[in-house]
């Protein structure tokens, strides 16, 4: 009776956790946060305020995923982070 013998089987909307579920979201950026190591006092405000978890506790910025919201630059008390226009091809 079944002309189509291919079966889907048990299939549900189950998803696997992983970084980059929306791809390399760094590509969304128009402005890029750039850290001045000299001015950084490691107060961790940029780390705690990053909505995307793209700044490590050692204040390393993950540009693959940083969306460039600019919160870190606004909140940095020493002015150690500046937003620089992205140069894109």
């Amino acid at each position: 009776m079944d002309k189509n013998e291919k079966k889907v089987g048990y299939m549900t909307s189950m998803s696997k956790p992983g970084k980059g579920c929306a791809g390399d979201t760094g590509e969304w950026r128009v402005f890029k946060p750039v850290k001045d190591e000299e001015k950084c006092n490691h107060c961790l405000l940029c780390w705690i305020f990053c909505p995307e978890a793209t700044i490590t506790k050692d204040i390393e910025i993950d540009y693959q995923y940083c969306k460039g919201c600019g919160i870190c630059a606004v909140e940095c008390p020493t002015g150690a982070i500046t937003m620089v226009k992205e140069e894109k091809q």
Partner: peptide, 8 residues
Amino acid sequence: PVTHGSVV
């Protein structure tokens, strides 16, 4: 840990 009922 898995997510269930995701946007499809």
